[in-house]
Design a protein around this nucleic acid. Structure first.
Length: 115
RNA sequence: GCAGGUAGCCGAGACAAUCGCGGCUUUUUAAGUCGAGGAAAGUCCGAACUCCACAGAGCGGCGUACCGGAUAACGUCCGGCGGAAGUAAUUCCAGAGAUAGUGUCACAGAAAAGAAAACUACCGAAUUUUUUCGGAAAAGCUGAAACGGCAGGGUAAGAGCCUACCGGGCGAGCAGUAAUGUUCGUGCCUGAUAAACCUUACGCGGAGCAAGACUAAAUAGGAAAUGGUUGAGGUUGCUCGCUGACAUUUCGGGUAAGUUGCUUGAAUUGUGCGGUAACGUACAAUUUAGAUAAAUGAUUGUCUGAAAAACAAAAUUCGGCUUAUCGGUUGCCUGCCGCC
RNA sequence: CGGGAUGUAGCACAGUUUGGUAGCGCGCAUCGUUCGGGACGAUGAGGUCGCAGGUUCAAGUCCUGUCAUCCCGA
């Protein structure tokens, strides 16, 4: 249903750097998204939070909120590409609803959203 | 009751539902069970462990520094001594050596460590408008600091020159394991700075889990040049000693994955005994996260509350230190006030 | 896990070695010059020397702790 196992998450420096450097990016107030269409990495996700957001507790919280937002909406997102979600400052004190709304918005702009 | 000191304790606030994550077990795709901290932080010390000669010599370098003890070890802890703050409980202190030597002490001041005390003032003698020689270190603006302080005697004027008291040094006795305290004697001995160099005593080999071990894959244990058993490279900065065949650069590429190390440990809790205490010891019980883009979250409801709200996330493991920090709470102690 | 550096006026930097006066440039303010502005000249303001404690007669400088920022190696 809404499971998000380990095999769906980007693993290793290689995969991560590939998406980060070769993919194209979009951003709004809450997050940045990197998208790359690659046969080997289809449907995989990564979550990140920059050092500027704060200490480890805050960064972990941002990543968890991103993860939760993606988990609940994973069936509405196209599976032919790899994604990295990076949290921004507005997400530090936000609730989950805000993250979900933001994710929906940014995916529609990237044209990977399925209704 | 108020004010203060000190030693601790507890908490992703609790419960429930739905969706979801990491490990382990059983079974096969579900179920059960466990799943962050007092600082997990900073990386400031000390160890374990691993590799380099299970680790050596000398110089250099670094660290520690009242005394005694605890400990695997420590720069930590406990007790004592000395000093400082406070009415007190109590707290704080790099707290060895300035008589081994070298350096520094701005400005001001006669003089800043050399006693030559050059200057003013003082005393004596000679010469007499004044100057010279000698004595003495008591007075002198200054300065952070002025060559023991202060009083009396003494003297031409003065001086530990002599005496009493205070201060300091040295020696002896007594108390104490010791630091130290105290009494007596001697007698004035010559600032400050070792968080300046330094001296003395003691300690320290280097690198770190990305240490290290194993498996597999890669056209590929590739090519060229230089150095090399007359010793490359490694071993700490250097010299020795040890080891003993590759090292460096360039060109053109590839891999960068998995397993292990990885959690049973100087472990935690309780009770008894020894010790002023740190701590030690005996017995019993308990196994308490092991991830690798990195697991604890989201939503809803109920309750406590003024408000779910502080600092904050394990990464090889322990013992400390330091720093951040909200709310609640307990024991003991001190001072003041009131009542019995 | 290990190593190194920086913090001084609004900005960019000296001064720290060897302790006694905190300074240069740009910028700012006032005045002069010009019909006016710029440039130029003169004068002036502006500093808890990242923070806390200690040593010293005296600390930007020496020592200890701490905070922040940046860099490097495996």
């Amino acid at each position: 249903m809404f499971e998000l196992g380990r095999n769906k998450i980007l693993r290793g420096k290689n995969e991560f750097n590939k998406v980060h450097s070769k993919g194209h990016s979009l951003a709004n107030r809450e997050m940045v998204i990197y998208i790359l269409e690659d046969e080997n990495l289809n449907g995989k996700v990564g979550f990140a939070a920059g050092k500027k957001l704060g200490c480890a507790v805050i960064r972990n919280r941002v990543k968890r909120i991103l993860r939760e937002a993606y988990r609940l909406n994973q069936h509405n997102i196209k599976k032919n590409c790899a994604i990295i979600l990076v949290g921004r400052k507005n997400l530090v004190e936000a609730k989950c609803e805000v993250a979900i709304k933001s994710l929906k918005d940014i995916c529609k702009r990237a044209k990977i959203w399925i209704d």
